[in-house]
Every structure is written in C-alpha cells, then in structure tokens.
Design a protein around this nucleic acid. Structure first.
Lengths: 346, 346
DNA sequence: TTGTATGCGTTATCAG
DNA sequence: CTGATAACGCATACAA
C-alpha cells in the first residue's frame, strides 16, 4: 500500500468532508467543534495516521512547543540527572527538548543559544549565571523566557542552590573537627561560576576561622576521577601535608579518596576528605563520602515545571528559587591525626 | 534601542538593496552570488544581528537540520557519554539534537519517535533493535534515516557491539579461573535486548562448560547501585553460595562489590565479581572491577558521523557496524576459594 | 548573477 | 459551528 507523502491537514479534511480549518480546530480546540464532526475527523485522522507537522504549526503560530537546554556537558552525573528530569517533565506536557552542550566554552554557549533560538525554541534553560551581555541580548531579542540553573543572576529567573554556602558548610564541618591544614581540588574556575562560588565559600569559612589557604593548596583540575587523583597526589606532596582535602565536586573528592588510599594514606584516620554534590556513588565508595547534597534532579524538575508555567502565562514576576542544601556526614571525615606536625617528609 | 521583531530575510534584503532571494542564496550558497553583493549582504546581516529562522527554512526546504535521539534514559553513564559525543559531532556539522527518553517503556518510545518526526527531524537515532513494527512504519513513512545503537536488527543501519559475546567472554574468564557456581545480577530483560543478549551470552558459555545456571541465580534488578547491592545480597544467601557473580552492567557489578564487602565477603578471595561496560568508575572502585569494555563514546561518535553521511547522500547501502569489545582484567576476579563446599550456612 | 513568484502545512481572522 | 483566505519566513524553479 504505497502512500505518497505523510498525510496532512488537507488529506484529513478531504476524507472527512470538511474544511481544512475545521480539522485544525478539531485537533487544537476540541470543544469548539460539533461532537459529530469531531468524532469523524478524529477517526479519519487516526486511520490516515495523521501526524501534525510542528514546523508548519510553529511557523504559523509562533510557538514551537520545544524548549532548548544548554549544558556544559551531558557526560556528567549531575547534568545528566537534571536533563533527564527536564526531558521527562517537558515531554509529559507535550514539549520537545533540544539539547546543546558547550564543554565550558563561553563562546560555544553563545553559538549554541543562537542556534537553538534559530530553531525556534519557546524557552531556554541554561546552567550558571555568568555569560556575556551579547548572549543575553540574543535571548531578549527573541523574547523567550530564560531560566538559569545551579547559579543565576538578575534579572532573569533561576532555580539555584547556594554554592557559596555549600563550600562554607563543608569547610566549617572540617574546621569543627579541628582541621587547620586544608587542600582543595576543584574544577577550572575561569568559566565555572558554580566552582568559583564553592571555593569562595570554602575560603570564607577558613578566613573566618583564621586558617590560611595558600593558592598552592588549591588544585584546579579537569572534572573527572583521574584528575581528582592527580590533584590529590599534588596536595599530598606538600609539607606539612594537609589533614583535610575538599573536592569541590564529588567526582574530584572520590578521585582524591582513591589516590590517598593508593598511597597508603588512610581516610579518615590520616586525612579527611569531603565533597560537594552527593552523586550516587558518594554513598557507596569506601569510606563513604561526606558531602553536601545538591538536589540536581529537583533542580531539573523545578526548572522544567517553572518553564511550563512561563510558557503558559508569560510576564510573571521572575522566579528566584534557591533550593535547600544539606551537609551529609558519612565516613570520610573525622578529627585530624593527633601528631599534626609529624608527617613523613617526601 | 528598541528593535521590533527579530530581523528576517526581508529586512536584510531591504538594507542591502537586493532581493530577498539573493540574500537567501548568499547565505546558503555563497559561491553562486557576486563577491561584492555577498560581502554587502554579510555585513548587513551581521549588523542587523540576523538569525535565520530554521522553522521557516525547514518548511520550505523539507530539511530541518535537526536529528532526533531516543534513549532509555540520560541518567546513565553510557547513554550520557554517547549522547554527548553525538551532540558534539552533529553540532559541529550545524545540526541540532532533539532528545527524548522513554525509561524502558516501548510504548513511550513509539510516542517519542512520533513526536520527534512531527517536529521534522531529518534523522533518527535509537538504542537497541527491538521495537514494534508500527514504530518502524512511522519512520519509514517519514522517510528519514534510522540508526540503531548498541544492538540492531535488519534491515536498518546500526552501530553496535556483540552483547552476546560480551556476556560470553566475561563468563569464560571466570570459568577459566575454575568457577562453577555462578550468580548473575542484570537489568529487567523484558524490554532490554542489550541485557538479554548479555545474559544469553553468559548462559551460552556456562552451558558449553557444562555448568548450570538456575533461574534463581539470576536476579533482575533496576539499573542502579542500590539494586546491584540487593541483587547481590539475594545471591549471597544461596546455599551453596556462588563463587562468582556477574553484573550484566558495571553499575550492578559495583553494587554487588560493595554489598559483598559490606557483608564481610572478600573480593576476589572469597567471591569473584565482574561486570560489563567499563564505565569510568570501574577502574577506581576497590578492588578495581574486571569487566568488558563497551566503547560507548565511540558508538556515539560513529553513529553521529554515519548519520551525517546519510543526510549528505541518502540511499546508501545500510551500515552494519559491530565495534570490537575487549575483556579488561582487573582485581575483582581470581580463582574460587579452595574449600568450595565449606560455606557458612546463613 | 539577480529578481519574481509560488508553495511548504498550519494557524488565525474574518465572514457566513 | 464552519468555511474561505491571508499570513508565517524562507527556498527554489523559472524568468530576466
């Protein structure tokens, strides 16, 4: 049964013996057309296997029922988690998700946003609050709602967490245990305001407690386990050796954990290690990782839900949502070893 | 400086003093328009901040420069990795990626594919080779190329691996060490042909070696660490206890590893544990996990690259690509304990 | 090399 | 409640 092209509104209209306009309405505003007509149209549409052409619909109506998501990378547990929730939420509301990633390159983000806009997305979701004015201008010119996740700046909407406080809290936890010599392994700070805030939060807590954190004790690394290991390796060489290492994200902290053990430095007896994020693995590594829970999935859900609201009724007062975070104490942190100054040289 | 709407081809044409058609050509086929005109048009376009409207372009040309990707979930290291590579590759070629997930529900996959088609994607990428005829009919009617990943069936293209062999290889490795009592923790097999193939591969190796694998020794679980733990817990209760447990994916194997240690069953001295996938964590858990490397990132890259080829020149002879896999022996497997029958009851 | 005119499949604004 | 018909923004065959 060779069927020509994919059937269109016109085909359904002809078969059902009504006008093309009626079919369009029947599908979009079912309660404005006569029940009999409606049923007939629906039957014909189903039989013909009619699938609406969203591009045409978008062109005509100005709404594409698609939203764009721009993340640094999908290959990261937290963004994958949030993306999955966003996808699910939007999809259930009949929206499609267009995803782009920029791998922490601001220029790439701008380009990606332009492309997404060009494809006619009705809304835009991004990560972080730091981006060039030009990028924001693009979004404003397109007049589509924008929501920032994890971190956000005025005047746009955001669903975020207090990354600064996350850093502060985990540092405070270690200070409370009596640690005074710290090391930090974090991602590259230049294009990552989440990491920047966290490290600043750590610094704030230390400064407040009168503890110094030399730049040589902060190791910027790519965001993977192996880098967490090498960052930790460098910190372990320091004399005197830190008694506490904070990974500004769990992946790095877990790498640090592994490296410490590989070198025979026991956690938490000889060194305490803590992270931020609370990814799935954090509770399962040995020893289980003390960390700060960042609700990635909920960030995704809330963001998507709010996006749907904005699409439904634009021009609301901007949402500035900061989700609660919470210290999760597990087994990778404790008091520093008693003989603080007795570290083996080399 | 209040600018009305987003500028269109017409605006650029007026400012540049040429026709709308010329602008269209200048942007799409630069070598077919006079250099002087071209430069002028480009200048005006840049100054006006012209962004092409892809929906209109798609409607008019029939090509949307977007491809659809349907995965079970993004919240899984292997799919996140592949998706990231696909996104990057397509994006660099000027294509956008539309992502949908179905969470292992065949009906949801069909619906997602219909939506994606409705949005006018030029190509479709899916995971696995098992889906209802109706779904394939949708794709054929739309006449867009389809590529299957991980597993695939004729007559469509696929970029896959031999999941059956992956299971076989890892089982063979354990058999070679002398194991005779096996347990398997796997995902739900019903809607997952990758897992099904792997388990069948395991079965094939065992059968070949004359080793039995009772159904009670196969634990189907959701795909996360916690489930890997409970699956392992159940297997450890068996009398006599298995001396080897295979996780049909690393996440489950790692969960099993953790549970075994939590119960004081040492790996690999008392029990050997192996996985399949070789996710990032596999090399970093303790003891490091013996597994089979499945090149998720390369699957993504090759799939995207082939999709671009198909979009460039349709009607090629279908690609049936099976990427090599390889056993990665680490420290979670060894010979079974000598006193095979002396297991502590309960 | 450039301009003109038509159509892509829907939506939406009118009359009827 | 239903039917014409004009946009929507761009691509492209055809004409100049």
């Amino acid at each position: 049964m060779p069927r020509r092209r994919t059937p269109g509104l016109a085909d359904v209209a002809r078969e059902a013996g009504v006008s093309i306009a009626t079919v369009s309405r029947a599908l979009a505003q079912p309660d404005v057309v006569a029940k009999a007509t409606l049923d007939r149209i629906r039957a014909v549409a189903a039989e013909l296997g009619y699938v609406p052409n969203m591009r045409a619909s978008a062109l005509a109506s100005g709404r594409s029922r698609a939203v764009g998501l721009v993340v640094p990378t999908l290959n990261s547990a937290i963004f994958a988690q949030a993306s999955q929730e966003i996808q699910k939420t939007l999809y259930n509301a009949g929206y499609q998700l267009l995803i782009a990633s920029h791998e922490y390159e601001p220029a790439a983000e701008t380009a990606a946003i332009a492309q997404l806009l060009s494809h006619g997305v009705d809304g835009l979701i991004v990560v972080g609050g730091a981006r060039p004015q030009a990028t924001l201008r693009l979004v404003e010119d397109a007049a589509v709602p924008l929501i920032q996740m994890w971190e956000g700046v005025q005047p746009h909407d955001f669903v975020a967490v207090d990354n600064h406080r996350a850093g502060y809290v985990v540092a405070r936890h270690l200070l409370d245990h009596g640690h005074t010599r710290f090391g930090v392994v974090c991602g590259h700070l230049r294009n990552n305001d989440r990491q920047r805030q966290r490290v600043q939060g750590i610094r704030a807590a230390l400064t407040e407690a009168g503890v110094a954190l030399n730049d040589s004790h902060v190791s910027e690394q790519p965001l993977n386990i192996a880098s967490g290991r090498s960052g930790c390796a460098a910190l372990l060489e320091l004399v005197p050796r830190p008694t506490a290492i904070i990974g500004a994200m769990d992946l790095l902290a877990i790498g640090a954990l592994i490296e410490a053990h590989a070198r025979g430095v026991w956690v938490p007896m000889q060194i305490s290690i803590a992270g931020i994020d609370n990814i799935e693995f954090a509770g399962h590594v040995f020893p289980s990782l003390t960390t700060v829970n960042i609700p990635a999935a909920e960030i995704g859900r809330r963001t998507a839900a709010h996006m749907l609201e904005l699409l439904r009724s634009p021009g609301q007062t901007p949402l500035r949502l900061t989700l609660p975070i919470e210290l999760v104490v597990r087994h990778s942190t404790s008091a520093p070893p008693e003989a603080c100054s007795a570290t083996s040289a080399t």
